[in-house]
Amino acid sequence: MFWQILQSLVLVLGLICSGSMVLAKDAVPLADDPLIEQRLIVISEEMRCLVCQNESLAGSRSDLANDLRREIRNLIKEGKTDDQIRSFMVERYGDFVLYRPPVKPITWFLWIGPFVILLAGIIGLIVYLRRRNQNVPSTRLSEADNRRIDALLKDAKSSSIENTYD
């Protein structure tokens, strides 16, 4: 009885494992020429995946990234230069596809924006601290309070000197 259950369990696990292999995607074919593949990697490292947005086109495994790499591979096979391929991608998807978009009026905010936000944060912090300091009332100590503080400081100083010699 135990052996029949064990055999059934092994059979079910085997079917589950073989079923997942059937659903696995095929590997994306590489170019026949390693030079084309090397050029593809260099170009796609400079471009952003439009789906992932924080990955390069070379590192992304999304379907769109696979399609774009295939398109770049075809353009390389057609004899296009790297600059022509980049221009094609920018015409089609805009400057956002490049990790380093060119500096021009439409992309100024991309280049200057982080510094503007940092400067605004610093100014906001300074304004907040000044307002907070103005709201704190300043109090004057009386002469008796000053004498008491001096006495406490002398006691603390003398006790620390005694502790160093002990």
Rank of each mutant, 00 (worst) to 15 (best):
N74P: 04
Q38D: 13
R140Y: 11
N74G: 12
I76M: 08
T107S: 11
A58D: 14
L75P: 01
D145A: 08
V97K: 08
P102M: 00
F88C: 03
R73W: 05
Y99V: 05
P101R: 01
D63L: 11
R132Y: 02
Y93T: 05
L152P: 00
L141I: 07
S142T: 06
A58R: 15
G121H: 10
L57C: 02
R100N: 15
I76V: 01
N54W: 02
P101V: 03
N146D: 04
R130C: 11
L50I: 08
L57I: 14
N54C: 00
P137R: 11
L141V: 01
E45C: 03
R48K: 11
I149W: 01
T139D: 14
D63W: 09
V42F: 12
N133I: 11
D83H: 14
I41P: 03
Q134V: 13
R61G: 13
F96H: 13
L57D: 12
A151I: 00
L50H: 03
A120I: 08
V90D: 03
L110I: 07
I43T: 08
L152W: 00
D145N: 01
S62H: 15
I123Q: 10
I41D: 12
L118H: 06
E55T: 11
R61Y: 04
R70I: 10
S56N: 15
E55C: 13
I76D: 02
S56C: 14
I117T: 08
L118K: 15
N54S: 13
L125G: 13
M89C: 03
Q84V: 02
R39A: 09
R69T: 00
N135D: 14
L110N: 09
R148S: 03
K104F: 03
P114E: 10
D150P: 01
V127Q: 13
N135I: 09
A120V: 11
L119S: 13
A120Q: 04
E78D: 15
A144Q: 05
E45L: 07
V90I: 10
D67R: 07
W111A: 05
I72H: 00
F115P: 12
E55R: 10
E143F: 01
I41Q: 12
S142A: 02
L57F: 03
D83M: 06
R131K: 13
R61C: 00
R70F: 14
M89D: 02
Q38T: 14
S44L: 08
Y99M: 15
N135A: 15
E78R: 12
V136N: 07
D63F: 10
I149G: 00
W111E: 09
G59H: 11
L68W: 04
A65Y: 04
P114V: 06
I43D: 03
A65F: 12
T139H: 14
G113E: 07
L98P: 04
I149E: 01
Y128L: 05
